[in-house]
Simulated assay, not measured.
Amino acid sequence: MINKIEGLVAAPFSPMKENGELNVSAIPAYYNFLKKNGVAGAFINGSTGEGVSQTNAERKLQAEVWAEQIKKDDSPMKLINLVGGTSYQECIDLALHSQSIGVDAIAILAPFYFKPGTAKALAEFCAKVAAAVPEMPVYFYHIPVLTGCNVSMYDFLQEADGLIPNLAGIKYTHEDFMDFLSCLSFRDGKYDMLWGRDENLLSALVLGARGGVGSTFNYAAPLYHKLIKAYNEGRVVEARQLQQLSIDMIRLLGKYGGIATGKAYMRYVGLECGEFRLPVKNMTAEAYKAFEADVRALNMEELFSKF
């Protein structure tokens, strides 16, 4: 049986020092922040966490500190560690390390240099990694906008089902609702399909999603808790209004340069995470003042997470 995750799984940012080194000393406070805001899990070393911009040693260190916090607290929060990359040997190394420290599940990314051109090739790559940790749940992280791998996830499940016995599901960060629904329906809903686009979470809930992984869950968890509750209780108009607030908030990411704006939101709610590593462009001090004014203009202070 696959234990499906319900609710919000935050994709944490990697805290950085001013010199660009990891600041793992900030992770205990970060963990407590997420716990207080009611998230069901943390998806570490992903896109938001700059996993691909770090060395394997750094990714291991982050995983160790996160795992330590959850075990020490005996927390029900699930920890998923992205071990994906372009070398399956390095992915296996990270997977074995994740298993050794008690991470709940791993996630695998499509190779993004030599890209798999078919669902079969993608499934075979993932099977290499998953076979190294046969008792561990494995998710596939589908984000074609960054990997350039546009394989249909329905086709992937057809190839992976049976080939990867410990495949738990997919973190689905794409806008193909037809493909997503087909994956939800595959083998009578066998797999855990975690939605990965915060700006249209409501649409995924309508199709049957029960959980999601997102960067904005870090700093606006109350907004999404309220949205999910409204939808589940049949207050669809209210749920739409809350989704629009999410969209308005996310539009500021684009206005101020993209993914690094997420760390500006974290600063706004009281948790300093430093800057993104190059080549990601970071916000200037002057731009941050304008950003603060735009955030306040959203009139959604009670829907932000509190540090």
Results as ranks from 00 to 15, higher is better:
100 S>M: 06
127 A>N: 06
56 N>S: 14
113 Y>D: 03
15 P>V: 02
265 Y>C: 01
261 T>G: 05
169 G>R: 07
170 I>Y: 00
9 V>R: 01
112 F>L: 05
169 G>N: 01
101 I>T: 06
43 F>H: 07
193 M>F: 11
180 F>V: 02
252 L>V: 03
43 F>I: 04
279 P>L: 03
200 N>V: 14
1 M>I: 13
87 S>G: 10
188 D>R: 13
209 A>I: 03
186 F>R: 12
98 S>A: 15
305 S>M: 02
291 F>R: 09
3 N>F: 09
37 N>R: 04
304 F>M: 11
239 A>P: 11
297 A>L: 10
82 L>Y: 02
258 G>A: 09
282 N>E: 11
265 Y>L: 08
97 H>Y: 15
119 A>T: 12
131 A>M: 04
137 P>Q: 07
153 M>I: 05
197 R>W: 03
195 W>S: 14
5 I>A: 08
160 A>L: 11
10 A>W: 09
277 R>D: 06
283 M>P: 01
97 H>V: 08
113 Y>W: 14
97 H>D: 07
8 L>R: 04
303 L>V: 00
131 A>N: 11
174 H>L: 11
223 L>A: 09
80 I>T: 05
295 V>G: 11
214 G>R: 07
225 H>D: 06
137 P>W: 13
72 K>T: 13
51 G>L: 11
89 Q>P: 01
66 W>C: 05
85 G>Y: 12
306 K>P: 01
23 N>T: 00
224 Y>L: 06
201 L>M: 14
85 G>V: 08
230 A>N: 12
174 H>S: 13
158 Q>N: 14
218 N>E: 12
